[in-house]
């Protein structure tokens, strides 16, 4: 057991899988010799060599297309898209190619690959390098979508994603790269489609993802201390497959639901969860489900503005307190 950073967990997860399976290859812009724009892949080139860990031109379509062709014919590629915002320039592969090949070919074509990408705000990079775009991927049938919040989950979900036979979009959060957590020694393999209850509680359910998870936990702690409100905090971890059982069971127990989303308001993943709860657990609810999101605006660059628009522990806490009437 050792404490490692979320950044180092990325390297560890990829290295674990590359050491296990020679079919795992890794490509992206500046990922090999430079070790990644966020230094999340330092040492992989040295450990596995330039044949398996390859720097590419700035050609996102070529990166994802090549990953797909390699996956279709037997490799298990991991492709990096440096900033998740850049998914927009290669969205054809995410939206039209990876997720539809198996279906359109009536099961002939396989596409076992991982696209890992740096998602989210907090770096003051402005509207084209800070977005949370997991909902861009969640809406497409045929994809799987994960977004870990802790180093141990990064390693375990990376392993699960690489071993999964379907295309997986793996969202790492830029503002979590420096965060640290205990990670056991030896191989770690997690399961896609499983949410985690990080803090049990009885008064309300808070469902969060990625950077919003530590913020929800902080809000929950302050609600307990300041207001005696006992929150259950669920880290969704995997948007597709979605662990609705864990969420519905929690709502059945606490009778209130709050989602904390970094994405802009419209069509965020929380809307889908609220819809499922409204459909299937309406009579478990003692009050309206509440979505806490970034407003529906492009992200501003300046620190004081960016800090205000993202859900903060303070905003989460106040929203829940007001809603519960304490």
């Amino acid at each position: 057991m050792a404490e490692i950073s979320y950044r180092d967990a990325v390297t560890r997860g990829i290295a674990q899988e590359m050491a296990r399976d020679p079919d795992v290859v890794f490509l992206g812009e500046d990922v090999a010799k430079p070790g990644g724009c966020f230094k999340a892949t330092v040492g992989l080139y040295e450990q596995f060599g330039g044949v398996r860990v390859r720097d590419t031109p700035i050609s996102e379509q070529a990166i994802l297309g090549a990953a797909m062709g390699a996956a279709m014919t037997g490799l298990k590629p991991i492709a990096e898209i440096m900033f998740s915002d850049f998914i927009a320039v290669c969205f054809d592969y995410i939206a039209n190619e990876f997720p539809k090949a198996r279906y359109m070919s009536n099961g002939q074509t396989k596409c076992p690959l991982v696209v890992r990408t740096a998602n989210g705000a907090g770096s003051r990079f402005g509207a084209q390098h800070s977005q949370s775009v997991e909902n861009w991927c969640m809406m497409i049938p045929g994809l799987k979508v994960v977004a870990p919040s802790s180093p141990i989950d990064v390693v375990g979900l990376m392993a699960a994603a690489v071993r999964d036979p379907d295309p997986v979009i793996f969202f790492e959060h830029k503002s979590l790269y420096n965060s640290k957590g205990e990670v056991p020694d030896g191989e770690i393999l997690d399961t896609l489609g499983t949410a985690k209850i990080l803090r049990p509680g009885k008064d309300c359910t808070i469902v969060a993802l990625a950077l919003m998870v530590p913020r929800a936990l902080e809000a929950a702690e302050r609600l307990r201390i300041d207001h005696g409100i006992d929150c259950e905090v669920i880290d969704v971890r995997s948007l597709v497959p979605l662990d609705t059982k864990t969420i519905l069971a929690s709502v059945a127990k606490t009778h209130r639901l709050f989602t904390v989303e970094e994405n802009p308001r419209l069509c965020g993943w929380g809307a889908e969860i609220v819809s499922i709860v409204a459909d299937e657990a309406f009579y478990d609810l003692d009050g309206p489900p509440v979505r806490i999101t970034t407003p529906h605006i492009p992200l501003p660059a300046a620190d004081i503005m960016e800090d205000v628009v993202l859900p903060t522990p303070q905003r989460i806490m106040e929203t829940i307190r007001r809603s519960l009437g304490s």
């Binding site: 398996r52 050609s59 297309g65 090549a66 062709g69 390699a70 014919t73 490799l75 090949a101």
Partner: peptide, 22 residues
């Protein structure tokens, strides 16, 4: 496969060729 989004399969063919090279 036959690809109906213009140009999409050129990078995909590169990937299959990369596997052969690898």
């Amino acid at each position: 496969g036959s690809y109906a989004i213009i140009g999409a399969h050129l990078p995909i063919a590169c990937g299959a060729a990369w596997r052969a090279q690898y």
